[in-house]
Design a protein around this nucleic acid. Sequence first.
DNA 1: ACTGATAATGCTCACCCTGAGCATAAGAGA
DNA 2: TCTCTTATGCTCAGGGTGAGCATTATCAGT
Lengths: 338, 338
Amino acid sequence: MGKQSGNNVGVEDEARLGSPPLSVELNAVIVSVDRDMPQVLCIGRDRGRAGGALPSGPLESTKERTLELAVRSWVREQAGLELGYVEQLYTFGDRYRDSREREAGERVISISYLALVRQGRLSAGTKAQWRSWYTFFPWEDLRRDRPRVIDEVVVPRLEEWVASASTKVLRQSRLERAVINFGLRGGQWDEERVLERYELLYELGVIAESSEEVRGREPGERFGEAMTSDNRRILATAIGRLRGKLKYRPVVFELLPPSFTLTQLQRLVEALAGRRLHKQNFRRLVEKGGLVEGTGSYDAQTGGRPAERFRFRQAVLRERPAPGLGLPGLRSDGNVRG
Amino acid sequence: MGKQSGNNVGVEDEARLGSPPLSVELNAVIVSVDRDMPQVLCIGRDRGRAGGALPSGPLESTKERTLELAVRSWVREQAGLELGYVEQLYTFGDRYRDSREREAGERVISISYLALVRQGRLSAGTKAQWRSWYTFFPWEDLRRDRPRVIDEVVVPRLEEWVASASTKVLRQSRLERAVINFGLRGGQWDEERVLERYELLYELGVIAESSEEVRGREPGERFGEAMTSDNRRILATAIGRLRGKLKYRPVVFELLPPSFTLTQLQRLVEALAGRRLHKQNFRRLVEKGGLVEGTGSYDAQTGGRPAERFRFRQAVLRERPAPGLGLPGLRSDGNVRG
DNA sequence: ACTGATAATGCTCACCCTGAGCATAAGAGA
DNA sequence: TCTCTTATGCTCAGGGTGAGCATTATCAGT
């Protein structure tokens, strides 16, 4: 883990060949949950203060047949983790996204993956460690109180930013972004808009793009820790994607043991979504939705009435088109003549 | 359009350098709709019988700042098209997905984009042409009658495949796939599962992976036309993605003129989704959903009562988290104490 | 054993959305 | 005017959702 070179040709060679140096790497946002906190596997490149980096590996074209297998393979080898759910997240290829481009003129393309793992045991000797994703995005955790930074810093700054627009049209569009992303003026908070919020905060100038850039600037605990190059952006993308996915695919179960109580399930979903849910309705949703079935055994360690243990109901995949946590949609109609 | 070389170093050079030859290209599924048919921009590499190929271009690391801008740029230059909506689709990088790997040992990674364009005029001199996407996926168009090939060929083959499973477990899992993807045994037809259906048909041996592979084999009109390398798979991915997106983002409007009748809108959605919708309910959905607003002008060319022209209502973006065509979801609750 | 505290689980109710279909309106053409 | 065709209006039943009250089952003390 932490190996940074992809399949690249040296700068000198490229210069001679005439085509610009290009390097392709794979990286992964590996998510787990521990004690109600969503954890992301990070490698502390500089073990000191400097924030985290996502694990990344070269694209070994000589080995695995598919990119996903390649990801599974190097994560297994380097961290001793057997990934559960894996999906391709996005391919990042903006110019200068990686400091190596400025330094060595080498453009780096990263094909990023999102992966879920149940257990968090890392093989000994790895420099990798689990970190709560809210370390990097404190404003995304609305489970307890609404994080102070939102109302104390972000909202005032947003208002200021909106008001300072030079034209009416610009002001309107800024207001729109503020409303959509941070729920200003009674707007909804859409927990999926992690990346958009991150980008807006960056535009506001309250956070830095990368930890390389932080040097000396006020990073401020309130705005969370920075990450290497554009890794924080990648993480934001992953969080948003996962939060969205929860709603239409039963991916949460990849993070739970085979049997669990409904409260455990709920706490997990809440941890990922960053907000609380109505308990009785959540129960109804997953039970009536056919997502889980009782096992008949009970967990007495609840502090109250014992809770039944449930298991994921595989059969749901065969019954509903998009099982996750409810959704109507574009329904068909048999009425061919309109 | 049709340029196939990405940023690669020659085979000889690579061999010397020791790292395997790798080429990165961008390609795009460019969608438009014409006379109730979703159209995809194709380039007929061999202008003869051999099926289509998606437009692709090299990743010019020297030019545009982002990958998306690069896509817009080469499409503009080479086909004279100004893309509207553009999103990254997926990065395809399986080994041997491209014939160039077998031939020249050069692994090709394709970063694919999905793009929508309103008008279909191509600049003169392009070898590109618009082709209905149902040319390649005839079984995906359920708007009129259910395509015969499904009940006459696919379903029997599926039944056979399920029955011929060697173990009970295998049979069960095959049945599950058949039910989920092709609606066997009264299962639902989920229009988003385009890729899964394509892959299942491939496993059944009724379609070939690429047009290179077709040579001599029975291609069969019923199973549609093949495409170059894995381009048909890329197209399948795009169709599925777009069909899904319709439901939660107002992307359809990218394909319509500024004002349109509700019937035009509905025909368009039906064309993309591959199935018919209930007219009155569709109207209710888009009107009550705040997606459109009347303009007060009317279109008398309907063959019946004139239809009011509507326009897309931008403001909806600010009101609903995921405007598209309806969707509840994971709702919050204020009740912090559960 | 009784008491509170703490959770889990059960159940109700109003409201909205959705699927389906009947009914009416407004043009075109015979 | 009659008929055909498409647009638009409206109703109704059923299910899903948001909210909250009520009951049950354990535990820690007394």
